[in-house]
Simulated scan of single mutants.
Amino acid sequence: MSLHFAKVLIARRATTFGKVDFSEIIDLLAIYFCLTIIFKMTRIKLTFIVYGDMFDIDEFSKIINISPTEFAYKGDKLKFRVSTDTFWKYSFKDIISLYVEDSLKPLEKIVTPRIEEIASFMQKNNLKSIMRFKVETNKEPAPAIAFESNTINLLSKLNSSIDLDLYIYD
Score class of each variant (00 low, 15 high):
Ser103Leu: 04
Ala144Asp: 14
Asn126Cys: 05
Asn126Glu: 07
Lys79Thr: 10
Phe147Pro: 03
Ile130Ala: 10
Phe92Thr: 07
Phe87Asn: 00
Asn126Arg: 04
Asn159Trp: 12
Ser160Ala: 12
Asn150Ser: 11
Ser120Pro: 02
Phe92Arg: 01
Lys134Met: 10
Asn138Ala: 14
Leu127Pro: 02
Ser149Lys: 15
Thr137Asn: 05
Ile96Ala: 14
Leu78Gly: 00
Ala119Ser: 13
Met122Asp: 03
Lys128Arg: 11
Val82Arg: 09
Leu155Tyr: 05
Asp163Gly: 02
Asp102Phe: 04
Leu98Gly: 10
Phe87Lys: 00
Ile162Ala: 08
Asp94Asn: 12
Ala144Cys: 08
Lys79Arg: 07
Thr151Asp: 08
Pro106Lys: 01
Met122Glu: 02
Ala119Asn: 01
Ile96Tyr: 15
Asn125Gly: 12
Thr112Leu: 11
Asn125Tyr: 06
Asn125Leu: 05
Glu108Phe: 06
Lys105Ser: 04
Leu127Gln: 00
Phe121Leu: 10
Ile162Ser: 05
Phe147Val: 06
Ala146Tyr: 14
Asp165Gln: 12
Val82Trp: 06
Ala144Tyr: 14
Thr137Tyr: 01
Trp88His: 13
Arg81Glu: 12
Ile110Asp: 00
Asn125Ala: 08
Pro113Gln: 02
Lys124Leu: 08
Asp163Asn: 11
Lys79Tyr: 12
Phe80Arg: 14
Pro106Tyr: 09
Asn159Thr: 04
Lys89Tyr: 06
Glu108Asn: 05
Asn159His: 14
Ser149Ala: 15
Ser91Glu: 13
Glu136Cys: 02
Val135Ile: 06
Lys79Phe: 12
Leu155Phe: 14
Pro143Gln: 06
Lys124Cys: 03
Arg114Asp: 02
Pro113Phe: 01
Asn138Lys: 13
Lys139Gly: 07
Trp88Asp: 03
Leu154Arg: 04
Thr137Val: 05
Ile95Thr: 09
Lys139Met: 15
Leu155His: 08
Pro106Asn: 08
Glu108Cys: 06
Met131Asn: 09
Thr84Ala: 11
Thr112Gly: 06
Ser97Ala: 10
Pro113Lys: 02
Phe121Val: 04
Asn159Gly: 05
Lys157Ala: 13
Ser161Thr: 11
Lys93Ile: 06
Arg114Ile: 03
Phe80Asn: 14
Val135Tyr: 04
Asn138Leu: 15
Phe80His: 10
Asn126His: 10
Tyr99Ile: 15
Met122Cys: 02
Leu154Glu: 04
Ala142Phe: 15
Glu140Pro: 07
Glu117Ser: 05
Ser161Ile: 11
Lys128Asn: 15
Pro106Trp: 01
Ile115His: 04
Asn138Cys: 13
Val135Cys: 01
Leu107Thr: 00
Ser103Asn: 03
Asp165His: 11
Lys157His: 07
Lys128Ala: 04
Lys157Trp: 08
Lys139Thr: 15
Tyr90Asn: 08
Asp94Tyr: 13
Tyr90Ser: 09
Glu101Ser: 12
Ser129Asp: 02
Lys79Val: 06
Phe92Pro: 02
Pro106Val: 01
Ala142Glu: 09
Leu155Ile: 13
Ile130Asn: 15
Val100Ser: 00
Asn150Phe: 12
Leu164Glu: 07
Met131Trp: 15
Glu116Ile: 07
Lys128Gly: 07
Asp163Ala: 07
Phe133Cys: 03
Phe121Gly: 05
Phe80Asp: 14
Asn159Lys: 15
Tyr90Asp: 11
Pro106Thr: 03
Ser103Tyr: 08
